[in-house]
């Protein structure tokens, strides 16, 4: 395990070595596409505190790569290290604690529709066992940060797409994750909301969080230049 300082990871945040991913075909499936490699021979490192774009056309494997990094999927081959843990060999029971140190933002927000904005943001803290009194201040601070304090009691269906995405970002960062992953976070937003969301993600990066943002929007990358991982047909382009 690499050393950590002040809750932040120091060293390599993510390290992939010859990683491949193949989804197992469902039982009885005759789809020839299932069972084929979606990611092949990926080797790269992301230093702690870095910001990277993850680029590539639709179907290139960006979401699959993010799933591997957020530990929502195990690699089929190769060795994968996240936050100093070789997750490709880790026991299943070790992963939940690691996931709580990784924030994820999705294109479709993935908020719980029956919970208010406040309770959606509070969810990671409650999962981590944070006391109710103690979490209230943090959640309120997050609502203020994303500019949605007056909407604390609103349910997600009552919010606009941009507001939902800001709530999703607040939920992703409320635990102060060491690694923040975003999968097409501006895909469903207009230009104004997209800029606002990107500003939030870049602010997290400035605070020391390692950030990876997947997008197929070259205009977004041009507006916010930065190092990039480029995927094509499940392979990294050099």
């Amino acid at each position: 395990m690499a050393p950590r300082a002040g809750g932040l990871y120091v060293g390599k945040m993510v390290r992939f070595t010859s990683v491949g991913l193949r989804y197992a075909p469902p039982a009885g499936s005759s789809d020839p596409g299932m069972g084929q490699d979606v990611l092949s021979d990926l080797s790269f490192e992301l230093p702690a505190g870095s910001f990277h774009w993850l680029l590539g056309p639709s179907g290139a494997g960006k979401s699959s790569l993010l799933k591997l990094m957020q530990l929502a999927q195990r690699p089929s081959r190769g060795e994968m290290e996240v936050l100093g843990v070789i997750t490709s060999r880790a026991r299943r029971g070790e992963l939940p604690a690691l996931r709580r140190r990784i924030g994820v933002v999705f294109q479709d927000f993935r908020l719980l529709p029956h919970l208010s904005a406040f309770d959606n943001i509070a969810l990671p803290l409650r999962i981590a066992g944070r006391a109710e009194l103690a979490l209230r201040a943090d959640v309120t601070e997050m609502l203020r940060w994303v500019g949605l304090e007056p909407k604390a009691e609103s349910l997600p269906p009552e919010l606009s797409g941009g507001e939902q995405q800001r709530i999703a970002i607040a939920r992703a960062v409320v635990m102060r994750p060491a690694l923040l992953l975003a999968d097409e976070p501006t895909g469903n937003l207009d230009a104004v909301q997209s800029r606002r969301v990107l500003s939030l993600l870049q602010e997290m990066h400035r605070m020391g969080t390692t950030v990876v943002v997947a997008t197929h929007s070259e205009s977004l990358v041009n507006a916010y230049p930065g190092p990039a991982l480029r995927l094509a047909d499940g392979r990294l382009e050099r």
Binding site: G7, L8, A97, R100, R101, L125, A128, G129, R130, D138, E141, M142, R144, W145, G147, V173, V174, M175, R176, A178, R196, S199, L200, E203, M207
Partner: peptide
């Protein structure tokens, strides 16, 4: 955009 949030929560992970 309001100011940077004050984080005190990583120890809960």
């Amino acid at each position: 955009m309001p100011g940077t949030p004050k984080f005190t929560v990583s120890r809960w992970a």
